[in-house]
């Protein structure tokens, strides 16, 4: 007997394989149904959505712009005008955290999208063609894996910072860090996608498509990738917070986003210098980051359990 099937039954009593369903369920419908039962994941999903909305409408929501300085109220505690107090240049901390959400989320999501495109492409090519192509690509991926991430990040970021392709100052500030994180981030995706493609390409429906005369790229795009979207999406939900964390690490050590732009890491860096006297400057951005990370983690766990009930409870 296999322990896998028993564990699935024990862990999700709602899914009883012996009772035939009336309506056939798609993988997605099934997953969403399971996800909705997971309260923590649903709450987290709403929280993530909220943070995204805050990030998009930062200008409308924040009481002050992120860079306006008011020297008459430097380093104040919470007041009616400045809910979380002000920093050493009299900037409103609450507004800066809101704008920080914008920068942090932008880095997290843009990076995830770019690494998704590269990772899926490389992983699919390696997995589909196999042979020498696979060996060369995966060797490269292995090497990138052994480079200490922060070192690579720092170097690549400095290089990309000199590439100016945007006029918008916010996008300009984001370019270097986003591209650097993507250079590091696609590797994990490529590995997972390759593994999945290796499995899927032996499936009978792929064989059928080939027998019907479909071309390789067509099969990959039309049949293989949609079938491996589940694990990819789960991985992405984990990658976004890890990108955000890396960005804040870099900004904290002073090599990420530069002030006056605000991200949670930048704020923590500014607050760290006056920790003893004004701890709120470091703690609130930390709390914001903590809540976002927690929400992403719980949402990711929920998604993973939803797509693959047998994985339930695994890290």
């Amino acid at each position: 007997m296999s322990t896998g099937s028993t564990s699935a039954v024990i862990q999700s009593p709602s899914v009883s394989p012996s009772v035939p369903r009336k309506k056939p369920q798609s993988l997605w419908g099934d997953a969403i149904k399971r996800l909705k039962k997971n309260k923590a994941a649903v709450v987290s999903a709403y929280f993530v959505l909220l943070v995204c909305l805050v990030a998009i409408f930062a200008e409308q929501l924040a009481p002050y712009p992120f860079d306006i300085q008011d020297m008459s109220k430097i380093l104040q505690g919470p007041t009616a005008e400045n809910w979380l107090g002000t920093d050493s240049l009299g900037r409103d901390l609450f507004s800066r955290i809101i704008f920080g959400a914008r920068m942090s989320m932008a880095v997290g999501i843009f990076t995830a999208v770019i690494s998704l495109v590269i990772g899926v492409f490389v992983g699919a090519v390696a997995g589909w063609f196999g042979g020498k192509m696979d060996a060369v690509l995966m060797r490269f991926v292995d090497i990138l894996y052994s480079v200490p991430t922060l070192v690579l990040l720092i170097l690549v970021k400095v290089i990309f910072d000199s590439v100016q392709m945007f006029e918008n100052p916010e996008l300009k500030a984001l370019t270097g860090i986003t591209l650097a994180l993507s250079v590091v981030g696609w590797v994990t995706l490529a590995r997972v996608v390759r593994g999945q493609v290796l499995q899927v390409r032996e499936m009978t429906y792929v064989e059928a498509a080939r027998a019907l005369g479909a071309s390789g790229p067509w099969i990959v795009i039309r049949h293989v990738i949609p079938n491996i979207m589940g694990p990819i999406i789960v991985l992405l939900t984990y990658q976004i917070p890890s990108n955000i964390l890396f960005e804040s690490f870099l900004s904290f050590i002073g090599l990420g986003l530069q002030p006056p732009f605000s991200s949670w890491g930048v704020l923590a860096n500014e607050g760290w210098r006056s920790l003893r006297t004004y701890p709120h400057l470091m703690i609130w951005p930390g709390v914001a980051l903590f809540l976002a990370m927690l929400a992403f983690q719980l949402f990711g766990d929920g998604l993973r359990d939803a797509f693959d009930p047998q994985m339930k409870g695994k890290t």
Binding site: W272, L275, G286, M293
Partner: peptide, 18 residues
């Protein structure tokens, strides 16, 4: 444990130091 996974070090550190 899940809170520990989500805790950024620059929240843990100031709290501990304080």
């Amino acid at each position: 444990a899940i809170s520990g996974v989500a805790l950024p070090s620059f929240l843990v550190a100031p709290l501990l130091i304080l």
